[in-house]
Amino acid sequence: MPAPAAPAAPGAVGAPLVDTHGRVHRDLRISLTDRCSLRCTYCMPEQGNEWLAKTSILTLDEIERVARVAAADGITTFRLTGGEPLLRTDIVEVVRRLAAISGPDGRPVEIAMTTNGIRLPEVLPALIDAGLARLNISLDTLRRDRFRELTRRDRLDDVLAAIAAASASPLRPLKLNAVAMRDVNDDELVDLVEFAIAHDAQMRFIEQMPLDAGHTWDRARMVTQDEILAALGRRWRLTPVPGRGGAPAARWMLDDGPHSVGVIASVTAPFCGDCDRLRLTADGQLRNCLFSTTEYDLLPVLREGAATARLDSHARSRTEDPAVLERARNGQDEAPEAGVDRMLRACVRGKLPGHAINDPAFLQPARGMNAIGG
Score class of each variant (00 low, 15 high):
residue 271 F to M: 05
residue 256 D to T: 14
residue 266 S to I: 10
residue 291 F to D: 03
residue 288 N to D: 09
residue 301 V to T: 15
residue 279 R to E: 13
residue 295 E to P: 15
residue 274 D to T: 04
residue 271 F to K: 06
residue 259 H to Y: 02
residue 258 P to Q: 10
residue 267 V to Y: 03
residue 277 R to M: 07
residue 268 T to Y: 07
residue 299 L to M: 03
residue 268 T to E: 11
residue 284 G to P: 04
residue 278 L to F: 13
residue 308 T to N: 10
residue 269 A to S: 09
residue 298 L to M: 12
residue 267 V to M: 10
residue 296 Y to F: 15
residue 287 R to T: 01
residue 287 R to W: 11
residue 266 S to P: 01
residue 308 T to W: 06
residue 304 E to A: 03
residue 289 C to S: 09
residue 266 S to C: 05
residue 257 G to A: 02
residue 264 I to P: 13
residue 308 T to C: 07
residue 268 T to F: 11
residue 287 R to Y: 11
residue 279 R to S: 13
residue 311 L to S: 12
residue 307 A to C: 08
residue 284 G to C: 07
residue 301 V to Q: 06
residue 312 D to W: 02
residue 283 D to L: 11
residue 287 R to Q: 07
residue 299 L to H: 13
residue 280 L to Q: 15
residue 266 S to L: 09
residue 277 R to Y: 06
residue 272 C to R: 04
residue 303 R to H: 12
residue 270 P to L: 01
residue 270 P to G: 05
residue 291 F to W: 06
residue 294 T to W: 13
residue 308 T to Y: 00
residue 265 A to R: 08
residue 281 T to Q: 04
residue 287 R to P: 15
residue 278 L to D: 02
residue 295 E to K: 09
residue 269 A to V: 02
residue 256 D to S: 13
residue 283 D to K: 00
residue 308 T to D: 06
residue 261 V to K: 00
residue 310 R to C: 08
residue 256 D to I: 11
residue 263 V to N: 10
residue 288 N to K: 01
residue 298 L to Q: 15
residue 283 D to C: 10
residue 284 G to H: 03
residue 259 H to E: 08
residue 296 Y to Q: 15
residue 276 D to H: 04
residue 258 P to L: 03
residue 310 R to Q: 14
residue 272 C to G: 06
